[in-house]
Design a protein around this nucleic acid. Structure first.
Lengths: 224, 224
DNA sequence: CCAACGATATATCAGTTCGATATATCAATG
DNA sequence: CATTGATATATCGAACTGATATATCGTTGG
């Protein structure tokens, strides 16, 4: 899962590990504070799989062919960057990674294949959504609908759990709040799905009726 | 974290591993489907730490001293349970675990100490809340307020993230929805906190003003 | 001036958790 | 009466976390 996140960030711009961590935290929001013990092994993994390559290892020469338009002025600083300008600068060694063609292929493959329904699915979905602009409109729609189905299933099991009378006050409140949150999530997804549908002309209609709001409203009406 | 969950369930009734897994899934809802690769090592861990003991190892003799009032008729079945009644029954070996006094101490210790603000804090809080009936009213209130502070902090960083203009449509939607969800969580916590306050006579007031709804409403007003 | 401190940056370790898989028993199914 | 499915315990490798180590550089303040 981390691999996907890293490839997604490198997809846009070559970067070094520490910066990847910062962007994961500040931009994505998923991976509140990804551990270095996850990040660096993941980068090594990806390098071993030829999905990324190390562009620049230290502050020395070997300027990359692409003079990337990015933020900081990494090249050959440190030498005599003693008192002149360059207020934010290189900092130590830095291994800058660049995604390869194979890595790009792996990225797309992870983006719509990997999706196993496991414990940590909210994070997985959030990550995919954050990179949704990179995938085909129909795959995007499929992603949203898979997530919707997932949440609908959860809603069903949550209601079974809430219907029992063995729960104490706190656990009951927890389950009820969880149910509400899931309904809120589904409503959000429905908005996204509708918005996607408007952007593309209904791929291959027929047997396709608008299902907006079936399970959500059903939560109010399933009990006799 | 699993240790806490296991001790919490064994706190109420002695059980075997498979059943613990079922209750974690069906009652708590956290740990959607806890892995056996987590569960059984955790039980061994707890046994090694003398927090739990194995009461009954197989379908043989050695009936536990306490004839626990619980559900199923485990004792000495399997022998000649061939065609007569007993529709749900023993099933194979089963190692039944019981919590020890030391385990009970560990449980209380984990319940209010461990709380590290890490990646997986929603689960950690949910777990503690599910066992909140076992702790002192003031500790319960403290738990709720710590969680509230945590979410308020998250709200602040989420707003910083949303204020940047570098996000694409999908990521922006993700962040906005996440913010809403956090606000919803805080409102829920405020309800729980109020409900707790009514149950106990304000421990030691002074310098304590009702803070219900400061950060939540602040999310509408911080921008100039 | 320079020592202390904090931010940047990479790396590794032990401990947990997960997913997959192996093994065994028993009930139900056909 | 063989196959399948539920119950039950166990173990493996891979991944993630928190902690810790190491190093460089900029800032701060005595």
């Amino acid at each position: 899962m981390l691999d996907l996140a890293i490839l997604g960030l490198l997809h846009e711009q070559e970067q070094h590990g520490y910066e990847i961590r910062r962007r994961l935290r500040d931009e994505l929001g998923l991976f509140a504070n990804i551990s270095f013990g996850s990040l660096y092994p993941a980068l090594s993994r990806l390098e071993a799989a030829h999905a990324v390559t190390v562009i620049e290892s230290s502050g020395g020469a070997a300027a990359p062919s692409m003079p990337f338009t990015g933020s900081l002025s990494g090249e050959r600083a440190g030498l005599r960057a003693r008192r002149a300008g360059t207020p934010r600068g290189t900092k130590r060694s830095r291994k800058v990674y660049r995604i390869t063609d194979q890595g790009r292929r792996l990225f797309e493959q992870l983006l719509d294949a990997d999706e196993r329904p496991g414990a940590d699915d909210a994070r997985s979905f959030g990550l995919r959504l954050a990179f949704a602009r990179h995938i085909a409109p129909q795959a995007r729609l499929a992603l949203l609908e898979r997530r919707r189905a997932q949440l609908t299933r959860r809603l069903a099991t949550d209601q079974v759990r809430a219907s029992g009378d063995t729960l104490d006050v706190y656990t009951r409140s927890l389950v009820e709040h969880s149910t509400e949150a899931t309904e809120h999530d589904i409503a959000w997804l429905d908005r996204l799905i509708e918005s996607e549908r408007l952007k593309q002309p209904a791929p291959r209609s027929e047997n396709r009726e608008p299902h907006t709001g079936d399970a959500v409203t059903a939560t109010k009406g399933t009990s006799p």
